[in-house]
Each structure stands twice: as C-alpha cells, then as structure tokens.
Amino acid sequence: MCPRNSLAALPWFHEALPRLDSPPTTAYPRPIMYKHRVIDEPGRRLLRMTVNDSAIEIAVRPHKTLLEVLREDLFLTGTKHGCELGECGTCAILVDGEPVLSCLVLAIACEGKEIRTIEGMADGPELHPLQTTFADLGAAQCGYCTPGFLLTAQALLDENPDPTRQEIKNALAGNLCRCTGYLKIYEAVELAAKRMRNGSDSEAKR
C-alpha cells in the first residue's frame, strides 16, 4: 500500500516512469494488458454522438477533450476557449441540454450524448431569439465570450422562461466577459425571454 495519497510519493514511481521534464506523450509506457478485460489503449477509439442534430462517428484518443474534438476534428470553431481549466466559461456548450465546460469534458465520455454548439443554435436561417437580442442590443462586443453566454442562457430559458434579473445573474455566473460589464447581456436575455413567452403565448392561442 502506498504511504501517501500522491503517486509521486512512491519511490518507484519516478523510476518506472519518466518524469515530466521528458515528454509525457512519447515516453508513454507500454499499455498494461489487463487480464479479464482489455483496457482501452491510449490509441483512438470510435465515438458516436449527436452534434447539432447530426449523428457523428469519429475516432478519438481518450485524453482529447470535447473542446479539442469540436474545434480541431469537427472544425466547429464557434466554441471558444479562454483558459482550458474551467475558469472562464467561454467553452460552455450544451450536453443533453445542460451547459457544461467542454474544456473539462472528455470527448469519449460523450458517447451517445446530444451536443449543441453555437453552430447549432439557430434554426436554419432563423436566429434563436437570444441570438437576435444579443445582436440587436449590443450584448456581443468582441463576441468572443458570446457563444458560451448564448448557450448557457438558452439552457436557462428552456428551464425558466421568465427569469428575474437575479436568476439571470446566477445562471451566467460561470461565464466571464471582459467587454460588456454584463449589463447588455442581461437586457438581451430579458428581451429574448419576453419575446419567447409572447411567441409561445400567441402560438398557444392559435
């Protein structure tokens, strides 16, 4: 049993494995073969998921984050990144309708999931009401944080069609924006919510 909880504390750990000052990717040890079950190799593995309503099949390596796969393999560069450590919210996307940070989710953990990115937010040529209000009210200045805000706000409105200002603040508390000071973003969310409520009202009446 190891004396401490950390791997590094084991004397043999560093002998058996290269330390980081040699490259971790190439100096990878040979895969350990497991007796009763073949363990996934660090090689590629087939992944099936739905991205913006299209079924996707793609071979990915286990350590690839969803962010990397979306941007670098699927060329969905609308998903942005600002830290890759879960600290800014820029990479937020929807997995089964819930906002999560694509920089901290493994792509292979998304097997069978429904992913929505900014590219799949508009309905064909029809902008999502949030996209319209963000554009019209100046809620996107440089626009870099915008995809993350839009998708997070969409999840909020899907769950709560009439959020208060405070509820909007709470829902968007995981997204940083350096340009707007958030105020125009709140206004855009409020206006979109109102339009969506009115829209569904009139549909219901019809």
Partner: peptide
C-alpha cells in the same frame, strides 16, 4: 491550448 496528457481510460 493547455491539454491533457495521454492516458488509458477505463469505463468499468
């Protein structure tokens, strides 16, 4: 981009 190192992934 900061990336994860390579590893084996197990889904028991």
């Amino acid at each position: 981009m900061l990336r994860l190192p390579n590893f084996h992934y197990h889904v028991p």
